[in-house]
């Protein structure tokens, strides 16, 4: 997973992150309440138009959407086999619409803005003394930042197995990966402290 934000000055870029997130949540709810293939197909088409308005190009769009579209295709295939074409059509149009709108929001909202908005939305919880709002935003930023690192580490461990002629087994992959990730987590926590990111206000 990489940061999917794209610099730009489209209408979606100019919308506030809160509007986009609330709008996406409302749209998701709407899409799951609707069971009409026609309405869902129109929604998917609209999603495609919104995504196309970002002008990322076919190749870039395909690279970004490929994992989610393949997943949707697999889910739709299972639905087709188990529940028939009508349900499969509903699943594929609903999930495609959702994926396209969500991808458009992700591509037009920087991580920093996203974190700031999540932090603001968590402020009521902070006032209740339940959490530190900034920690929730920071946690999300850390997930986005370090997933590629963990994937890189996973590939390095897999390559180390191959280089030594060892068979790649889930257990021998996951144990060193977990140990390395936890060790890194300690260092990252120390870096957060050292940079005063969580300094008391």
């Amino acid at each position: 997973m990489k940061t999917l934000y794209v610099e730009g000055d489209t209408f979606l870029h100019r919308l506030s992150p809160r509007t986009k997130l609330v709008g996406l949540a409302a749209l998701s709810l709407f899409l799951f309440l609707i069971h009409s293939p026609t309405v869902l197909s129109v929604s998917a088409t609209l999603g495609g138009i919104v995504y196309a308005s970002l002008r990322l190009g076919w190749h870039q769009s395909w690279l970004r959407l490929r994992p989610i579209l393949l997943t949707i295709a697999i889910v739709a295939l299972f639905t087709l086999v188990l529940n028939g074409w009508h349900d499969a059509l509903i699943v594929i149009t609903r999930l495609t619409a959702l994926a396209l709108f969500a991808a458009a929001v992700t591509a037009t909202t920087s991580t920093g803005d996203f974190i700031d908005e999540i932090t603001r939305l968590a402020m009521p919880l902070e006032r209740l003394g339940l959490v530190r709002a900034a920690d929730i935003g920071l946690s999300i930023g850390l997930v986005i930042r370090f997933v590629p690192e963990i994937l890189g580490r996973y590939q390095a461990i897999r390559d180390a197995h191959r280089a030594r002629g060892l068979k790649v087994r889930p257990l021998t992959l996951t144990v060193p990966l977990i140990i390395l990730t936890l060790k890194n987590a300690d260092e990252i926590a120390a870096a957060i402290d050292a940079r005063g990111v969580r300094a008391q206000k």
């Binding site: 991580t111 920093g112 930023g141 850390l142 930042r145 260092e187 050292a194 940079r195 300094a199």
Partner: peptide, 25 residues
């Protein structure tokens, strides 16, 4: 403090956002 592995020191994905994070407080 600059750590031995600067990779772990950059907390947010985009460099500009990470540098700005230090100024939040």
């Amino acid at each position: 403090f600059i750590f031995q592995n600067p990779q772990n020191q950059i907390i947010l994905p985009i460099l500009k956002e990470d540098i700005a994070l230090g100024l939040k407080s």
